[in-house]
């Protein structure tokens, strides 16, 4: 063993962890080699110094202030609350499903309701348009040169529940002025459905003084008697004075007068 090897094993030698042979060799070498003896002494001193040095204990004061600081720091921190996963209760999830179904269903109903409102509006518009169309068609047809077309137009008015004044005037015009007596008769019949209108009532009374066709006269008398129109009495009495009026017409007039009084 040379000096370098000895120096490397000096720390282990001092700690006493080497084998007996190595310890005896190092003992003999240190006795004979002055330089290695110096290194041994210095190392021995250093290790002794480390071993003898006592561990510095922090004062109790320091300990307290540290713990206070820690507590203060803890207080300063915002409270963090851990999110607990919600308890999965079975009745709750049933409620949740029920609620979503209810929302869905309400949405469906609401949508359906709005849709039906819209479609009702659409139907209403369509119906008004259709009524307008029908009325225009009717007004065009009522002046047609073919008498059967005019009768068709007159009969269309029976489908109208509330014909406007234009239609009523057109019907009255047919009843008073049409060249064909069947058209005049049909118009009188159609007008009998709208006797709530004062316009229609006066026009029917007027027909009694102007119409010369007994079939139409009889028809109009029947309508006026049915609605108990007393103003028809005077023109009816005038028919009785007409020499050209046929007997059966006069009979009808007399029956009418009897029913009106």
């Amino acid at each position: 063993m040379n000096c370098t090897d000895i120096e490397n094993k000096l720390v282990d030698y001092i700690d006493g962890v080497l084998s007996e042979n190595e310890t005896k060799t190092i003992n003999k070498h240190i006795e004979s080699c002055s330089s290695c003896k110096n290194v041994f002494n210095e190392t021995n001193e250093l290790i002794n110094a480390f071993t003898n040095e006592t561990v510095a204990q922090p004062t109790s004061n320091l300990k307290t202030s540290f713990e206070e600081m820690l507590a203060q720091e803890k207080k300063k921190q915002p409270k963090v609350i851990a999110l607990q996963p919600a308890k999965r209760n079975s009745y709750k999830s049933v409620l949740q499903i029920a609620a979503s179904v209810a929302i869905l269903f309400t949405g469906y109903l609401l949508g359906g309701y709005q849709e039906s409102q819209n479609s009702q509006k659409e139907i209403a518009t369509y119906q008004t348009e259709q009524k307008q169309l029908k009325e225009n068609m009717l007004l065009a047809m009522i002046d047609n040169s073919s008498p059967s077309t005019r009768i068709k137009a007159v009969n269309y008015t029976e489908e109208l529940t509330t014909p406007d004044t234009k239609i009523l005037e057109a019907l009255i015009d047919r009843m008073h002025n049409d060249s064909n007596s069947n058209v005049r008769l049909s118009a009188a019949e159609a007008l009998s459905k709208f006797t709530d209108s004062e316009l229609v009532k006066t026009s029917l009374i007027q027909t009694l003084t102007t119409e010369k066709n007994p079939s139409i006269q009889v028809e109009v008398i029947q309508i006026l008697v049915q609605i108990q129109e007393k103003r028809a009495l005077d023109p009816m009495k005038k028919i009785l004075e007409q020499p050209e009026a046929p007997d059966y017409l006069k009979t009808q007039v007399n029956i009418g007068i009897a029913q009106l009084i």
Binding site: S146, S148, T149, I151, N182, L185, S186, N213, P214, S215
Partner: peptide, 10 residues
């Protein structure tokens, strides 16, 4: 297409 209408008084 169009109506048929017959009328007679007597």
């Amino acid at each position: 297409s169009n109506p048929i209408s017959f009328s007679t008084a007597t």
